[in-house]
Design a protein around this nucleic acid. Structure first.
Lengths: 342, 342
DNA sequence: CTGTTAGCGCCTTCAT
DNA sequence: ATGAAGGCGCTAACAG
């Protein structure tokens, strides 16, 4: 590994000059600049990134920690994040938090240790308190995605989970469904809670009583969606629609439904969440809610870059979901026109 | 940011001593060790990772470059990679190559610049020549995954793509299918070529003539799977089974089939590749080939660590796929017992 | 056991 | 326009 000293010797100049041509700082005579470049070329010189960063106190890179790498959702997120940081000419460094709050915190620290210019944190498990503490203690600017931070509104970019779930369920209701089952995503996460509350509020608004027997607590996996749906079936819970709080569980549930001889949507309607890539290719196409993850991460990166540049940032208004209606929902028993005595 | 000097001053010792207690190297009296720890605590000291790495010429981390972040496949890969590096107490740094050969190369360089102890490269696009050159020129050890390297057999861990495809198609044939369509993954990649060759060889072995009209060149996406399947349908290509070279395209194709009024597997059999998480939850369950990506990446990391430790490594035998048989294949027209005049 | 002294490779005033 | 010198924060002999 040729060093800057080697280059300077070979070009017959000082290290300072080499540094100048390397960074385009200061004035350097064209002829010597050429000599330096030639020397670099000949030696196959590559600047030592670590040394540069140490001297500069910045590494021209932004860090991203996701709670896990699994799932299409994070793939989408990462891909877009990569594109956007690239657009800023910065490197993206990704780590995951092993789906555990303490590991998420460690991941942030590690990125901070590497002197990322800014860090974006996608956490599913850390408490707001812990997050705020982390923001305060971490020496590099932090942006939190997928989480509303009441004590740091400008540092977060998040999604109206509750409202989106509300919309989905209300849609089901207006389609004539009153008996709607719900399978949640992990209920100990803010996302899990918010979606369930959305479900509940929609029922409330339309005067449909809350029935605990109609909700089951899932973990986001297809397998669990399948299992919980079977439980509903075995328990004979009477519903005309099922709201699965993510598409993966909806898929699992659909298998259980099929095995029970129930057709979607003729016998039971199904609604998902996330708009997984597969949703539109399933048969029938799965109605779901689209979550603008691409724009969200893009925005998060924009904010992070601003912070890194010590510019001021303004709070970002929450992002909202949009219903994607396909064929997995049919009019229910209370649909106007088909109304029966209830 | 408190530095080591701050700590040493506060503890009334020299930097060297602080360094010793920090790294557990050399002998330090218990009492002073305690003073140092106390000082660190009080100052909230965190060692500067960049400085450490610069002095050590190693960063205790291993780099991973994937061609893209998109898709369940890479999620699986990344998750397992993260776990395994963690088991070694090393940090994992991930970057993507934006699905372009030159970007993949840049990604490797960037990781090398950061002095990763070793790098694992998952490339879909680089030529073998370019890879070999990269291995030679990169100052940090490189392991290539998903690619057979004839000129560096010990530096690669790969999968028998061709044989797996062969098995899948042969299975179809033994089930009585002779007219089998094929939709490839990107044909300019080694993977794309290998799977197609596997298809072709299986036909050959069973004396079934190769029919160019029965193969279409896809891009791995569900959308394209759908489109190409429609083309088959419109062209009236007569087949009793379809071999999609990945599950995503199989899903897209299944939609086209459904829309054409064709039932799987009664009217046409479908075979995928990759064993996507959704494969078993589709209706009918998709027969496909399982690719041991978890073990592969784990092995790759083991190898990388060995290289990082300057241990010797032996070539890893190729990994093989295993057929996962579900319900998307039914006996075809030439199935023994149901055989007709052909 | 602990301090002193050099680096690691690069950047950045400050002179010239 | 260029060089000399010091510093970024840490590690590693080498002396005591």
């Amino acid at each position: 590994m040729a060093t800057m000293l080697d280059v300077s010797l070979r070009a017959g100049v000082s290290k300072a000059t080499v540094s100048r041509v390397l960074n385009g700082t200061g004035q350097v005579k064209e002829s010597t600049r050429k000599r330096v470049f030639a020397a670099m070329e000949e030696l196959g010189y590559r600047p030592n990134f670590l040394a540069q960063s140490l001297a500069n106190r910045t590494s021209n890179s932004i860090g991203l920690v996701v709670s896990t790498f699994a799932g299409f959702y994070f793939g989408r997120l990462l891909q877009q994040a990569s594109r956007q940081t690239e657009a800023y000419g910065k490197q993206l460094i990704v780590t995951d938090g092993h789906d555990a709050p303490d590991r998420e915190e460690l991941a942030v620290q590690m990125l901070a240790d590497r002197r990322c210019d800014a860090i974006i944190l996608y956490t599913r498990f850390m408490s707001e308190k812990a997050i705020i503490r982390l923001i305060d203690e971490t020496p590099v600017p932090l942006i939190v995605i997928n989480r509303e931070l009441h004590q740091a509104h400008d540092k977060c970019v998040f999604f109206e989970q509750q409202d989106a779930a509300f919309q989905a369920v209300e849609y089901l209701i207006t389609q004539g469904h009153h008996d709607i089952a719900c399978i949640t995503v992990p209920i100990h996460t803010p996302t899990g809670k918010a979606r369930l509350i959305g479900y509940r509020k929609a029922l409330e608004k339309h005067g449909i009583p809350w029935d605990p027997a109609k909700v089951k607590y899932g973990d986001s996996t297809m397998t669990r969606g399948y299992e919980l749906c079977r439980e509903f079936l075995q328990e004979g819970v009477s519903v005309s629609a099922l709201f699965a709080c993510n598409d993966d569980m909806a898929l699992g549930a659909s298998k259980a439904l099929y095995q029970a001889g129930l057709r979607i949507p003729q016998d039971i309607s199904l609604f998902g969440f996330d708009d997984a890539p597969s949703a539109r290719w399933l048969e029938p196409g799965l109605s779901t809610v689209y979550l603008p993850i691409d724009t969200m991460i893009t925005t998060a990166i924009d904010q992070a870059i601003r912070l890194a540049n010590k510019e001021t940032i303004a709070a970002i208004p929450p992002f909202t979901g949009t219903l994607v209606l396909r064929e997995s929902v049919a009019p229910g028993p209370f649909f106007p026109g088909t109304e029966q005595t209830s």
